[in-house]
Design a protein around this nucleic acid. Structure first.
Length: 869
RNA sequence: GCCGAAGUGGCGGAACUGGUAGACGCGCCGGAUUCAAAAUCCGGUUCUGGAAACAGAGUGAGGGUUCGAGUCCCUCCUUCGGCACCA
């Protein structure tokens, strides 16, 4: 062992084999033992790990290993989000089946994860593209169909008229199909939806209890759900003079501002509103039809491009609605700023209090009546803030809230309308017209309609051995696959050929991990492990995935499958990995990007970068700033090459040491070298200590002041590191504290037996504190120090509070708030004693002599501020 | 436009409850070791003045509260993220 140099790859591979042989991280339910379910979002098997994965999974592993060392029963699983479009793209490019490509990627990436030493329970691993997994998803869907929670409705898709196929949004480039180049059309086809809106209220209210979630995520979800309170009421169709339609037809409108109803000067229907054709006056029919066509043909992007902001366009229908408040007729328009998908698809327009209505009224010459008094100095347009009601008959003088309540009560009393809460959230469209996904388990029968596939016929298996051409889904192209018989009447029928949105698989994988092999979606084991104690993933999933999995958990709860209301107690959204970019500009202004590994940076003698050159030709390159690692900017760093060069421990250490987990990390090779140097130093110092021979037991009661000082620093550090990891997620400050302590320890000369015992205690603790971040070297050094058993099971070092007691404290002395001196005092020194010591210092006297002391602020053991004038 | 987060040395960042601004790391400067280099080790490093002691300035800008503000309040600027006609 003498002078063994630090050889990470030898150590790491050996330690990893040991863990595997010991089944070190397999988890079992143990009643009565505190569990900790730590989960990082599962990866899409794209081919190889990128730095974002490494950081994400290192963060999860640090938290897992920390809690394991604290004695908790930890579950940390890993799997593969294996369905999805990239497999289809790759299949076209490489002429292989998506399944083969996916499984090969999984094998490669599993190897990479293992090489990084993550403490996963690999016995629970699965890929979501296997029938053993998705059959339960299909079963759940058929149950939801029967409950009415899943329904079919026409919805728009991107349609490529040349390839005759549906395109995902990513496949539409500048409004054209990515392969055919044809202008993409909007086409309405029947698709399946899940009624997430039934849970809108609960999803919103549940956020209030998620104290362990970042506010940013909760805010985004609140906005996405978009709850608004108001009322819905009916306005009768009438003529221009207010004479009500004899047939009694009416239009229901939703408003959050019933208090402004006296200011209604027109009303609007969405162009798709079902009453448009029926209500339109015959002489306006042509203009209205033309407008409806125009709206259909223009996408939102078209309209944005025209002005920068959205123009409001509309058309008069020739019809009128009766305003029950004023008992007068208002003209009814169609306008593109009213959306069919929200509220009733019809509004009352009050330009005085709504900027959109104001804009439209100005454009179409409609009258404007203010019903809330703006301040005197207001010279803007619509006034949307508080103020007393005006021009509103019996509401006049009321403040907005009071007037809202009065107007709503009046509508309810008259039987015209009622209170109503609306949500922005839409039902979840789960149909995808792709091949590489979970088949939707539905059979269409001419007689019986859409019939769920019976339980005993599940799973509906997606064929994996297919010729994949990319134009159309193989199961759509294969009549034999489609053809079946109706489970209800036995007549010939056809299978659904659409597949599920891949968010379906990622909505319940966390449940399945807890129940490997269960002959059901989940079994009772789920309630041992759930809820997840710590979930970790990227902020890009703040809305969709993190909403869907909350929803799915509630759906599963209502099916009696899981007990908890919310699936994850704490959520950590890790920051991106970013890196410098470098480029050269071609004559036509296009940029060619160079990888940071190919570039040398020149600095002035203060270390400030002044330029950069390309190593291969010595020519100048431009510095492009720090960006998220990406192929397009060529600033990615391959984790594999880093592991090969420095070892997994160094890569893991650096990826959590330079910024807090929830902030972005700037990748720098010299920073990685810094982490490597630190581990080498720890290695050398521990080995030197070990080689000096065995230590006698620590006798904490008989130490000199320097030995006590080391122990005090050690136990302060232990307390800080645990808090930083578990509560604050600031691994960077935890690592800084460990470094600070080891720097100090290196300066401590351990000649005698007592000092060596202090050093032994210190290294035994440091090695354990490093173990969550750098488990391999810690394992090796722990053994070298004579630690019992593996370090992952060694227990977190305990804090000896008696060692942390200070015999001296530094009191900061200020004069008029400016730092002038420091004095060393015994802890608990009284104000008079502190002041006396302070005034005895020359530098303090210099600033107080000849002046009157007005006030003395004393913060015991911290600070003394002498105020003079 | 609305909502949210953030602006601190040459750089990443630290300062958790209003109490020593710049921990730790990188970079840079100097030194030791070496025939030399790499590696390693030691010292220095916010700016200005000073040999030093020390003094002055300093946390995006401007105001305020306080004995004391990076931290709290108001106004503004910039950057990033989300939503974007949601009645």
């Amino acid at each position: 062992m003498a002078n063994t140099p630090y050889d990470p790859s030898e150590i790491e591979v050996r330690i990893q084999q040991k863990w595997e042989a010991e089944k070190a991280f397999e988890a079992f339910e143990e009643a009565g033992r505190e569990k900790f379910y730590c989960l990082s979002m599962l990866p899409y098997p794209s081919g190889a790990l990128h730095m974002g994965h490494v950081r994400n999974y290192t963060i999860g592993d640090v938290i897992s290993r920390y809690h394991r060392m604290c004695g908790k029963n930890v579950l940390q699983p890993m799997g593969w989000d294996a369905f999805g479009l990239p497999a289809e793209n790759a299949a076209i490019k490489n002429k292989t089946a998506p399944a083969r490509w996916t499984y090969a990627n999984i094998d490669h990436m599993r190897g990479q994860l293992k090489r990084l030493g993550f403490a996963y329970d690999w016995s629970r691993e699965f890929a979501t593209c296997t029938p053993e997994y998705y059959r339960w998803e299909q079963l759940m869907f058929t149950r939801l169909m029967k409950k009415g929670m899943a329904y079919r409705m026409d919805s728009e898709v991107n349609w490529d008229p040349v390839d005759q196929t549906v395109l995902a949004n990513e496949q539409v480039v500048d409004g054209r199909g990515w392969r055919s180049g044809a202008v993409v059309e909007r086409k309405s086809i029947p698709q399946w939806f899940l009624k997430i809106t039934d849970y809108a209220e609960e999803l919103l209210d549940g956020l209030d209890g998620l104290d362990g979630w970042p506010d940013a995520v909760k805010t985004m979800q609140r906005n996405w759900i978009g709850r608004s309170e108001g009322c819905e009421f009916e306005m009768k169709v009438c003529d221009a003079d207010g004479v009500i339609d004899p047939e009694g037809r009416g239009v229901r409108v939703f408003t959050t501002r019933p208090d402004t109803s006296f200011g209604m000067t027109y009303a609007v229907l969405a162009p798709e509103h079902e009453l448009v054709a029926e209500i339109t006056a015959p002489e306006r029919a042509q203009a209205v039809a033309a407008f409806v066509e125009q709206v259909k043909a223009s996408s939102e992007e078209d309209r944005l491009a025209e002005g920068g902001s959205l123009d409001k366009r509309g058309v008069f229908t020739g019809a009128y609605l009766f305003n029950p408040f004023t008992e007068k007729a208002v003209p009814l328009y169609l306008a593109d700023y009213v959306l069919m998908g929200y509220g009733t698809g019809a509004i009352m327009a009050v330009p005085g209090q709504d900027q959109r209505d104001w804009d439209f009224a100005k454009a179409y010459g409609l009258p404007i009546i203010r019903t809330v008094q703006p301040p005197d100095d207001w010279d803007g347009e619509a006034w949307v803030e508080d103020g007393p009601a005006i021009n509103s008959d019996w509401l006049n003088g009321m403040e907005v809230d009071e007037a809202k309540e009065a107007a709503t009560a009046w509508l309810e009393e008259k039987g015209l309308g009622e209170r109503k809460v609306n949500y922005r959230l839409r039902d979840w469209g789960v149909s995808r017209q792709r091949y590489w996904g979970c088949p939707i388990p539905v059979i269409y029968c001419d007689e019986c309609g859409a019939v769920p596939v019976p339980e005993d016929q599940l799973p509906v298996v997606l064929p994996e051995d297919v010729e994949f051409m990319g134009v159309n889904s193989p199961i759509k192209a294969d009549p034999d696959w489609r053809r079946t018989t109706c489970p209800e009447c036995g007549a010939p029928a056809e299978r659904e050929t659409d597949t599920f949105d891949t968010f379906m698989e990622s909505s319940w994988y966390m449940h399945r991990y807890t129940c490997p092999g269960a002959d059901a979606m989940v079994d009772d084991r789920v309630n041992y492990w759930f809820p997840i104690d710590q979930y970790i993933g990227g902020i890009e999933h703040a809305i969709l995935h993190l909403m869907y999995f909350r929803f799915y958990n509630k759906v599963m709860r209502d099916e009696g499958l899981v007990a908890c209301d919310e699936p994850a107690t704490r959520l950590l959204c890790q920051g991106m990995v970013v890196a410098d970019t470098y480029y050269r500009e071609d004559a036509d202004g296009s940029r060619h990007w160079f990888n940071p590994a190919e570039v040398d940076v020149e600095r002035d003698d203060k270390g400030k970068p002044v330029g950069a050159t390309l190593r291969s030709d010595g020519g100048k390159v431009m510095i492009g700033g720090v960006e998220k690692m990406s192929k397009s900017k060529n600033n990615g760093v391959d984790p594999q090459s880093m592991v090969d060069r420095y070892g997994a421990d160094t890569v893991r250490l650096f990826s959590v040491s330079d910024s807090p987990a929830n902030q972005s990390l700037e990748w720098s090779e010299s920073g990685v070298e810094g982490s490597f140097r630190f581990l080498k130093r720890v290695w050398t110092q521990v080995m030197e200590h070990v080689e000096a021979g065995p230590c006698e037991p620590l006798d904490a009661a008989h130490l000199d002041s320097e030995q006590k000082e080391i122990r005090r620093l050690l136990h302060d550090t232990i307390a800080k590191v645990g808090d930083d990891i578990a509560r604050r997620y600031t691994f960077n400050t935890a690592i800084a504290a460990i470094m600070e302590f080891t720097n100090r320890l290196a300066k401590f000369s351990a000649e005698d037996a007592r000092s060596r015992a202090v050093v032994q205690e210190a290294w035994m603790a440091v090695v354990r504190m490093l173990a969550p971040m750098t488990p391999h070297i810690s394992e090796e050094l722990w053994a070298a120090l004579g630690g019992e058993g593996p370090v992952y099971g060694a227990g977190w070092p305990g804090v000896d509070e008696s060692a942390r007691v200070k015999t001296q404290v530094t009191l900061v002395v200020q004069v008029n708030g400016k730092l002038r001196a420091r004095v060393e005092l015994a802890p608990g020194a009284a104000r008079e004693e502190a002041l006396e010591s302070a005034l005895s210092i020359e530098n303090v006297q210099r600033h107080t002599d000849g002046k009157t002391v007005r006030k003395v602020i004393h913060v015991p053991d911290r600070l003394l501020n002498i105020v003079v004038s």
